[in-house]
Design a protein around this nucleic acid. Structure first.
Lengths: 160, 160
DNA sequence: ATTCATGCAAAATGTTTGCAGCTGT
DNA sequence: ACAGCTGCAAACATTTTGCATGAAT
């Protein structure tokens, strides 16, 4: 079995190797962004959110640097770009094998709930097998209404 | 069991009911956009593409009308918004129950295999229910190798 | 007659780019 | 010294909005 968790240092190493290979440079800004992005919570962070977090540590940071650095993380396979339909691109650390999770997205308030379900994973592989298909990765997103938005819908039903 | 196919007229009826309920109006533009969007192929259409198609039938159409009409379709549950990361929002007709299909995408040759699996759908709803979530739609994509690409991989193993 | 819809253009939003000066190698 | 990086502002692309006119109820 593949190990469940890969330590921070491994991600850092991936980046360092990539920088070396492409003759890119290691900078203070990249370090801070790396740290904020990988070592602090906040899944599915937007560029703006990350910008604000980094700004606290490094006030003269510019938006462009955040954009460029996230693109860099994406290029070396460390970050994943997502878009849940609110006009903002979100990024999340790429999950290594065993860390996979799926998403429920509330179309009412935009809340994102993460989940993992072994049976869905199992049947996905099963369907694939029946089609001679070998699954490397999958993406599952459920769109609908979260609990509190369902309440709001009920309450407001008369007003429509 | 729920019927597999809902005829065009049913979608039209959903829209008409929604318009009536909200005291909105039926217009020529909405009819044409409806027709282009639901009755002509082209999955995952962009606003620009739809605009160009509608323009052929109704040259003085404006972009804003397309945007507003797609938002209307979305509101009444007929359209679904997607974003594949190229900066353009795409729309597709919402699949009714029994019409839903998921995708296996071969990363070797790009082939897309559609499938439907009731158990996956069942467990998706189940996971949602446990979280107080009401699912309107879902998206499942399996990425991997199709049968023939797996063969090729074996044959070519020496060349890698 | 009233209310809503449309088309246009302007504005807003999110993202990318060009460039002068700065930093890491 | 060189190549790459940064911050800024301007440029871009997409989407939304305000408003006068036109259409549907």
């Amino acid at each position: 079995m593949i190990p469940k968790v890969r330590p921070k240092s491994e991600r850092k190493k991936v980046l360092e190797l990539y920088l070396a290979k492409k003759h890119l440079k290691s900078t203070k800004q990249r370090d801070i962004i790396f740290d904020e992005f990988f070592n602090h919570p906040g899944q599915h962070i937007t560029v703006e959110e990350l910008y604000e977090k980094v700004k606290k540590q490094y006030p003269k940071i510019g938006y462009a640097t955040i954009y460029r650095t996230l693109k860099l993380f994406k290029e070396c396979g460390l970050a994943f770009e997502r878009n849940f339909g609110d006009g903002k691109t979100r990024y999340e650390p790429v999950k290594f094998e065993g860390e996979h999770h799926d998403h429920m997205i509330c179309v009412g308030c935009g809340r994102i709930i993460e989940f993992e379900n072994q049976r869905i994973e199992y049947y996905s592989r099963e369907v694939a097998r029946l089609n001679g298909f070998e699954v490397l990765n999958h993406k599952l997103e459920l769109y609908g209404y979260c609990g509190s938005c369902r309440e709001k819908k009920k309450e407001g039903a008369n007003n429509l």
